[in-house]
């Protein structure tokens, strides 16, 4: 009885299973970032003064623009999901590409920000530029800053890759019925990446700034 649907009973069964799998994977991702946020919770209390010094050195303007970019990107991708649900293949590719483009812009700005920080010697280690009694806490902050933005950036890269893969599939399958599920599943992932940033933004740029 081998058929291409196996191990599922119906296409709908297969789709449900894929969506459930993505949700469960995201639960796992929550705990990945959860470990990082535990570090924040601890050090922003035990090394409060230095931690806040670190926060004050981040670039609020770039951070805010990036937040705007990413929220817009997520919203745009939602348009692609809506189009997929309505079965309109043509309307999927443009917003999806837009979402990926905004993601690339985010990463571009982020790299520029990193570049500025490197040249100001804010990377923790021997040449760290913040000094004084609380410099240790500031270093801990910047360790967290670079690690969390790198990890988030990596997730963005994966997300952008997935979106491009969806676009490629849609372009190749012109004229056939629209497979909704890949669009939805990638949308879940992209929203998650967005959500992580919504938590990272206040932690890195806002809390303790004023």
């Amino acid at each position: 009885m081998p058929d291409d649907l196996a191990p599922y009973d119906t296409p709908q069964h297969r789709d449900e299973t894929a969506v459930a799998g993505m949700w469960l994977f995201l639960a796992s991702e929550v705990l990945l970032f959860g470990g990082l946020f535990l570090v924040v919770l601890v050090y922003s209390h035990t090394r409060r003064a230095g931690w806040i010094m670190g926060v004050r050195h981040t670039n609020l303007i770039i951070g805010s623009i990036n937040t705007l970019l990413l929220l817009t990107s997520s919203a745009m991708y939602t348009l692609a999901v809506v189009a997929a649900r309505a079965g309109r293949a043509r309307r999927i590719i443009a917003p999806a590409l837009g979402a990926a483009g905004l993601g690339v812009a985010f990463l571009g700005l982020k790299s520029w920000e990193w570049h500025l920080e490197f040249s100001e010697h804010l990377f923790p280690g021997a040449g760290f530029s913040i000094s004084g009694p609380d410099a240790g806490g500031a270093q801990l902050f910047y360790s967290f800053y670079f690690l969390s933005t790198a990890l988030h950036g990596l997730h963005m890269l994966v997300g952008i890759g997935l979106i491009l893969w969806v676009c490629y599939r849609m372009a190749r399958r012109r004229g056939q019925p629209v497979p909704v599920i890949p669009v939805e599943v990638v949308g879940l992932y992209w929203s998650f990446v967005d959500l992580v940033w919504i938590l990272l933004f206040p932690v890195l740029y806002l809390v303790g700034r004023v």
Partner: peptide
């Protein structure tokens, strides 16, 4: 990278 995360010398 020899940076502080858990390093007590840096308050970690």
């Amino acid at each position: 990278f020899h940076v502080g995360v858990f390093d007590p010398a840096l308050g970690g």
